[in-house]
Design a protein around this nucleic acid. Structure first.
Length: 676
DNA sequence: AGCCACAGCCTT
DNA sequence: AAGGCTGTGGCT
């Protein structure tokens, strides 16, 4: 790199060394990268006017001799190609200055020279929409400028540049504290704890997957996140504002049974351990339990389909009517509660339960005598059989009867008699054998019961006296669903593919990943915070509308206390991003990818509508004025009424002052660019 | 696309 | 300790 004392002017034209904005005659512009430098602060100045005209900044002139850390194998070639490419752009008379700037930017941020000749054309392949183009597009835009590879763990600097985590760490490890591309300083926290930009991860993974899919023959159906690509543990998505399992995506499902699988989960469906799910197995929480297929819903207590049957239930203490005797228990159906608003649980009943939905699913399992898996949660406090911690698999039960009766709260509830019928002993018993058929307990409440249902036909799951174990007497119902974690090519053409997989093109799915968490639309002027969350510039501005960086504090009118820093929490993760908000820079690489994807989507839609070729269109409207992109955010803004869309809670105790409201106009313009 | 759910974290 | 809050995922 350049001599350590050499630094260019920043985005506002201020010299990064002396911090003044030098007049034009004191600035020197690099002929290669067109960055302005302050003449007086340069360690080596050009000697003649002619030299000045052909001057190359210390960064560019050293590009060849100082390859970035991890390009040892590729040596100087990429840099030489890069410079040649920049020169080609500069000499292209057909481009406006703006276009040139845009292309330079793309190049310097890892713009692919992969294609050899037309370096920047990856972004202009709109309309074709071929899936492999998407990978090319990402390769052209997100390549780490150190190693020239598509990063598998991308990190984004506050100045809006993307690198591999490894390369970034290496760079920082060398003591560098400025961005390798624009020289903006890297905040200490980012340097010590870089965060992976998970939106980019998903996008890149998706593009790679798509490529491998198209490469090997017919296109495979695509799942928004394929099971095999999910992490082993539950994780929180970009959109989920609070971390924690309640708002988490499930992790990988380890077993190979379909979601509507009845009965025990056997060893053959457990490629991970080869044991199947064993009675007594305990998991941390419902999410983890889900991953092993014992009980899939992570909130609901019943897993089932009203016309098909119920596969499993959870005893979690949600219904006070439940009565647990270990080998048998009385279970209460779901519903009867007012869950309006955003409640998920509500202990008070306000209407009768009916045999519909999940309750009906349980009744089907009762009639058919299907085996039902049972898990008990530590939250069931009144039961002696509940585990101390976590969620435990207790084996197979059968529903022998069901009925309705007035519940403790007065409203009618659906009731089910579950009796254990597993080949393994229950976790609480020291018995070495599993269950034998047993007489049904006498249930007092049956006297007041209505709608009593008993099984009339042979139970599907029953005890075989000869084999001395519980088996399927009637073949298990065929699964109507597909296992999510095996490859989905070949064979069965009647398989159902999820709706979203059929309708969305790759570009559209990628665009979905690039949605702003605040407005839920595809980002315009995307910003990436140091905590690695992505937002529209305007949305982030609006979120902190009217807030100042510092908070004045007065002590009951007497004297002014030292101003206090105003904490501005990232809308995604509650990290303080006030420092970042002083001068956030648009992630241009991301922006250009979004641009292209939007063009592709738009054009493929038009193609679909017209069914004929579309002529080359001018892309003028998609261009964004240079000045708009990184104009300062003064953490100032605008119209408070626009801010509260239920996404942001106001803090009452704090009074903020608005400095000005100049940003409004720009803002409206940029938000009008939102498409899709 | 809307509804529903015996979660789990955070605030009071 | 109790109640509030809220993305997610499956069913309809």
């Amino acid at each position: 790199m350049a001599h350590d004392s050499d630094l260019p002017c920043d985005g506002d034209g201020r010299c990064m060394i002396c911090k003044i904005s030098p007049p034009v005659e004191e600035t020197l512009t690099c002929k290669t990268c067109v960055t302005p430098w302050h003449l007086n602060c340069l360690s080596a100045r050009p000697k003649t006017l002619a030299d000045a005209a052909q001057w190359e900044c210390p960064d560019c002139s050293n590009l060849i001799s100082s390859p970035p850390p991890s390009t040892a194998t590729s040596g100087s070639e990429p840099s030489a190609i890069l410079i040649a490419a920049i020169r080609a752009i500069e000499s292209d008379a057909s481009l406006s200055d703006q276009d040139k700037a845009k292309r330079r930017q793309q190049l310097l941020s890892g713009g692919g020279s992969d294609d050899g000749d037309k370096t920047t054309d990856a972004n202009n392949e709109a309309g074709v929409g071929g899936d492999s183009d998407v990978l090319k597009l990402l390769t052209g835009s997100f390549n780490c400028s150190f190693c020239m590879q598509l990063p598998d763990r991308p990190v984004t600097t506050p100045c809006g540049h993307n690198f591999c985590l490894k390369c970034f760490e290496k760079w920082v490890g060398q003591g560098k504290r400025t961005c390798a591309i624009c020289r903006a300083s890297i905040p200490p926290k980012m340097a010590s704890q870089p965060r992976i930009n998970s939106s980019l991860v998903i996008a890149i993974r998706m593009a790679k997957l798509t490529k491998s899919n198209t490469a090997s023959g017919p296109p495979k159906p695509y799942y928004s996140v394929l099971n095999q690509n999910r992490p082993d543990k539950a994780y929180t998505t970009e959109r989920a504002k609070k971390s924690g399992k309640a708002n988490a995506c499930s992790g990988k499902i380890f077993v190979t049974v379909p979601p509507d699988h009845f009965g025990p989960i056997l060893a053959e469906n457990d490629p991970e351990r080869g044991t199947g799910v064993l009675v007594g197995e305990t998991w941390e929480d419902r999410m983890e339990c889900r991953q092993w297929g014992a009980h899939l819903p992570h909130v609901a207590g019943i897993s089932g389909q009203s016309h098909y049957g119920a596969q499993s239930v959870a005893l979690s203490g949600g219904y006070e009517d439940d009565e647990d005797h270990g080998e048998w228990f009385l279970y209460t159906g779901s519903g009867g509660r007012d869950l309006s608003g955003n409640k998920r649980t509500n202990k008070t009943q306000s209407f009768d339960q009916k045999f519909e939905k999940y309750n009906e699913a349980l009744r089907v399992s009762c009639r058919k005598g299907y085996p039902v898996r049972v898990v008990r949660s530590h939250k069931e406090k009144r039961s002696a059989y509940a585990p101390e911690k976590g969620v435990r698999y207790d084996g197979i039960y059968r529903i022998e009867k069901c009925w309705r009766k007035p519940g403790i709260q007065g409203y009618k509830v659906c009731r089910y008699l579950f009796v254990r019928c597993d080949n393994d002993p229950a976790p609480w018993t020291s018995d070495e054998n599993g269950d034998r058929p047993r007489d049904l307990p006498s249930i007092k409440e049956l006297k007041n019961a209505t709608d009593v249902t008993e099984r009339k036909s042979t139970p599907s799951w029953d005890f075989d006296v000869e084999k001395a174990c519980w088996v399927w007497k009637v073949p298990a119902p065929g699964s109507r669903k597909q296992v999510d974690n095996v490859d989905v090519e070949d064979g069965n053409s009647t398989r159902k593919v999820r709706r979203k997989t059929q309708t969305l093109s790759v570009s559209e799915r990628l665009l979905k990943e690039f949605c702003c968490v605040i407005c839920h639309k595809v980002m315009t002027l995307p910003l990436t915070t140091p905590c690695a969350h992505n937002f529209c510039k305007s949305c982030l501005q609006e979120t902190f509308a009217g807030q100042t960086l510092m908070k004045e504090r007065t002590c009951e009118g007497r004297r002014t206390l030292r101003a206090q820093k105003n904490i501005m929490k990232c809308p995604s993760c509650s990290n303080d991003i006030s420092d970042y908000l002083k001068n956030p820079q648009v992630n241009r690489e991301l922006m250009s990818v979004i641009d292209t994807l939007q063009r592709q989507t738009k054009e493929s839609e038009e193609n679909a509508v017209l069914g004929e070729e579309i002529l080359n269109t001018d892309e003028k409207t998609d261009d964004i004025e240079e000045e708009d992109i990184n104009s300062d955010i003064d953490i100032v803004i605008v119209d408070e009424s626009k801010v509260n869309k239920g996404l942001k809670r106001k803090k009452d105790g704090e009074k903020m002052e608005t400095i000005s409201n100049k940003a409004k106009q720009e803002d409206d313009e940029s938000s009008s660019l939102v498409t899709v």
